[in-house]
Design a protein around this nucleic acid. Sequence first.
RNA 1: GCGCCCGUAGCUCAGCUGGAUAGAGCAGCGGACUUCUAAUCCGCAGGCCACAGGUUCGAAUCCUGUCGGGCGUACCA
Length: 562
Amino acid sequence: MRIRTELERILSAAVDDIWGDLVPEDFQVTVSGSDNLEFGDLSCQSPLKLARIVHDNPRKIASMIVDSIKKKLPGISGISVDGPGFINFTLSLPYLVSVSGMLASGGLKSLLPDIGNGRKALVEYVSSNPTGPLTVGHCRQAVLGESISSLLEATGWEVSREYYFNDTGRQMTLLGMSLAARYKAVDGGSAEIPDGGYHGDYITEWAHELRDEQGSGLSWENSSTEFITFARERAIGIIKSDLSLLNIEFDRYFAESELIPDAVRSTIDKLSSIEIDGKSLVYPDNDEAGKLWLRFTSLGRPSDRVIVRDSGMYTYRMPDIAYHIDKFSRGYDLMIDVFGADHLDTSKDVTAALEILLGSLAVSDRLRIIIHQFVTLVREGRKIKMSTRAGKFVTLRELIRDVGSVDVTKYLFLTRAEAHMDFDLDLARKESNENPVYYVQYAHARISGIMRTAKDAGISLPEEHAALSADLLDGEHERELMRLLELIPSRTAAAAEACEPHRLTEILADLATGFHRFYQYKRIVDTENPDASSARLMLCEACRRSISDLLEILGIDAPERM
RNA sequence: GCGCCCGUAGCUCAGCUGGAUAGAGCAGCGGACUUCUAAUCCGCAGGCCACAGGUUCGAAUCCUGUCGGGCGUACCA
C-alpha cells in the first residue's frame, strides 16, 4: 500500500522537476497494479496523459521520467518503459516477502490504511417498516449494508449501524386494523380487512396470540392502540430474528415516534422561514385548509410535494427530513444511507431539503446515499411479482432455507448494487452446491489442514519474518502468490472507499485460485527442508489470514475443516 | 411522456472510476489422485462488450441517439 503512494510521490517530483509549471497543479501521477505479469507488478500510465499536456511523445516522456530518477527506489527491483508509454515496475523479492510476512503475522488489518482514523460513521440500512417479515429484497440490502459497515470498520471508521422505521403513519394504522379484523375472526366474527391492508398469514397468527393473551374483549373501536402496538412489537420481533439469521445486529432501532415531539414541526418552521426568489418554501394548499406543500421546484426538484395533509398528518418525506437533521446533529463525520431503487426520488427530495437547511457542502461531504436495484425473483422460468400488502412475497427466511446456506445466500447477493439482479429460486439450490464461496472456504480449510500437518511434523512459522531469507521463496509460484497477496490491501481499501463490498468476492476468488495453484505445484511441508517449509508455511498463513479476514468483513464463516 | 439504473460467453456475474491480447464460476469437451483434503489443478471451446454515431494517441468504460428490461413519476413508506 505504502509503496504506491511513495512511488507516486517520487514520480510526481520528477515530473515537477522536468516540466515545472507546464503541468497543472491538480495533475495526479498514479501507480496501480498491473493486470498482466509480463508488464511488471505495478504500472504508471501517467506519461500517456502527460503527452497531451506537454505535447510530446509519451514514450519519450516516460523515458525522461525514468532517467531522472537517480535514487534506487525502495522495494523495486526493475523499471522499464513499455508499450505506448507505460512505466512498469517490478517489486523486489525481499519486499514481497516482507509484505507476506506482515499479512501472516498481523493479518489484513495491519496493512489496511487508516482511512477513517477514528472518525464516526453511521450506516442506515434495511429500515423496513414493521409490517411483516423481511423479504428477499431486504436481503440484498441487509447484506450490502452490513458488509459496507464492516468494510468501513476495517479501514478505521467507528461505525454505528442504525435501522430507522416509521411507526406513526397510515401504514401502522392499516396494520393494526388488519390485525383487529383477524382477531375478530378468531371468535367467528366477520372480518373485513381494510383497503390497502395486510393479508399475510402471520397476521392471523398474531391474532390468535393476542386472543390468548388478552381474551376476546378487544375491538378496533375501543383499543386501536392496543392492536397497533401489539402488531408493531410482533413485527419488530420477526424482523430482528430474520436479521439474526444473517448475523446482523443493529446498534440502534430508531423509531419515528422517538423523534423529539416537535422535531418535525420545527423543521417545517425552519423551511417556512426560507424564501427563494421571494417565495416561501412552504405554502398552503389552495383548497384544503391545513394542507401544506413544500416548494421542491425551487430546490431544483421536478415537482412540489405535500408535506402535511389536511388531516394534519405528515407525509413520509417530512419525518425523513427531520430524522436526517437528527442524524446530522449527532455529529457523525459520515452518514451512509442504503436504499432500494424505489427510494431514489424521495431521497433526492430529502437531500435537497437538507442542503437548504444545513448547507450543501455539509451535506455532500457527510451524507452518502447508496441506491441498490431490485432483485427479480424467477421461479419455474417466470418472474414473480411480490406484494407485502397482499401477503404475496418470498421471505428472507424462506430464501435462506431454499438456498440451504447462509454463507451462500450472502455470497449470491454480493453483486454490484446498481445492477439489477435476477435470482432464480430453482437454480438456487443447485448453484448453492457449486457456489464459489465453497471454493474460497475450501482454500481456508486446506491451509488449516496444512497447519495441522506442519505442527505434527514439528515445523512452525518463522519466528521473525524480517529475518527470513528471501531466497527460500524465489520460485515463480511463490512469487506469483506473493504478488497476489501484495495487492490485497490496496484492493480492499479501494473497495472500502467506493463502498463496494462485492469487490471482496473477486479478491477472495483470486486469492483462492492463487493458493490452490500454489498447493498443486509445491509441497509445503517437507521435513527434509525445514527452513524452506517454514518459509512456505508463512505464505500459506498469509493466505489463510487474508481469506479469513476478508470473509469476516463479509460476515461469512471461514471453516478449518470441510 | 419525463427522471434514474441496467443491457459483457449458453447461464450467473467481474472488469480497479479512459489504457497494453475482454475475465471468473457454472454448464460442455479432454487430461491429472501411492504424495499436506480431487469441494482441487491443467488444457480446449465459447464474445461485433444491445445497436448507431461522436470525443482522442486509446472506449466495455465518457457524450448523444435508438432498441430492450427494471424502478420511480402518491396526500403509501
